[in-house]
Computed example of a mutant assay.
Amino acid sequence: MLSRIAEALFWIGRYVERGDGTARILDVHLQLLLEDPWVDEDTACRALLSVMGTTVDSGRVLGRDDVVSMLALDREHAASIAHSVASARENARRAREIISTDLWETLNETNARMPRRVASDRTHPFFRWVRDRSALAFGVVDSSTSRDEAWHFFSLGRAIERADMTARLLATRSLTEAGGPSWTTLLRSCGAYEAHLRSHRAVPTAASAVEFLLVDRLFPRSVLSSVLQAEECLRGIDPAVAFGSVDRAQRVLGRLRSELEYRPIGDIVRQLSESMEEVQVSVSMASDAIRERYFPSIAMPVWIGEAL
């Protein structure tokens, strides 16, 4: 497979997952600003923008409308939903001869219908729409793509991005602590609440929620499950990896997997922000290693704050 096609597929997976993850994070925290009058809006908005890799002039007072404008609708902002949707569509155009017509039409329609403005009372339906469109794109790929190199590169990008977005979602919990979203809210935001109840049969606690979103092997949005998926995709792309020829990306992911599996959850909960930053750094290193190995001659799209 040509490296430009492989890169386009990798970034389609990443950008679609990025739009979905950003919508989930924004939905949780903007609802919190509406429901909790004791949260300082400017501080909460700045902390959220920081977690998403964006900095703003300290002399400006921020509100929820500013966050929606920057992280949802600004087509020029590299961390926004609109930019992710447009970038996924552009990469699909570059790989048009490989991807299915259904996927192309899904991404093209999503980009065409991306609104320029969203009313304050319509943000939740908008984020729901973004999540539904992302789920449709992933469903089209899963149901109509052969499990060949094209599927492995798409799934690799999706897994790498999902690990990063779940880590960012967990990092937002420590932004305002007492005034932050509850563990139940965070679990619901990524569809994990009912799965957590079935697994733990108890109301979520800090330890159980962090453990579930980090190291549960059966829940597809957990960081560990995403890392395992990425490792499987690398083995599918290069079968020699399964026989001991381990490249740098495999070593980085293996180190991250070992850290997640054997580090006590209590230690992670006590240093949640620092632990999630370490996960994001490892994911960024793995992404760099994949770029150097499989598409070295092409400039990589950079998300602000990806290399923390």
Rank of each mutant, 00 (worst) to 15 (best):
E259P: 07
R122Y: 07
A137P: 06
G254I: 14
T185R: 06
Y294Q: 00
D288P: 00
V279D: 06
L30T: 05
W183T: 00
E306Y: 04
M276K: 06
D216A: 15
L49H: 08
E41L: 05
E306I: 03
N111V: 05
I99D: 00
P264R: 06
R64P: 03
D216V: 09
P220W: 03
A178T: 14
A307R: 14
A163P: 08
A171C: 08
L107R: 03
F10Q: 03
R60Y: 11
L175I: 02
A86N: 10
S284D: 10
R255W: 10
R235G: 15
V56K: 11
S282F: 02
I12Q: 02
V141T: 02
M70F: 13
R96D: 05
R263Y: 07
Y193K: 13
S282R: 11
R263K: 09
R248N: 09
S222N: 10
M70S: 11
A95M: 10
D102M: 02
S282M: 13
V61A: 10
L224H: 14
G305K: 00
T145Y: 15
D142W: 02
D132F: 09
V56N: 08
H200G: 15
L34N: 07
A171K: 03
S155W: 02
A8K: 05
V140W: 00
S174V: 03
A289C: 10
V246M: 07
G21T: 11
V252D: 08
R162A: 05
Q250W: 09
S282L: 10
L30S: 08
S297D: 12
D36S: 13
A23C: 11
F126D: 03
H29Y: 04
A167W: 00
I99Q: 04
G157D: 07
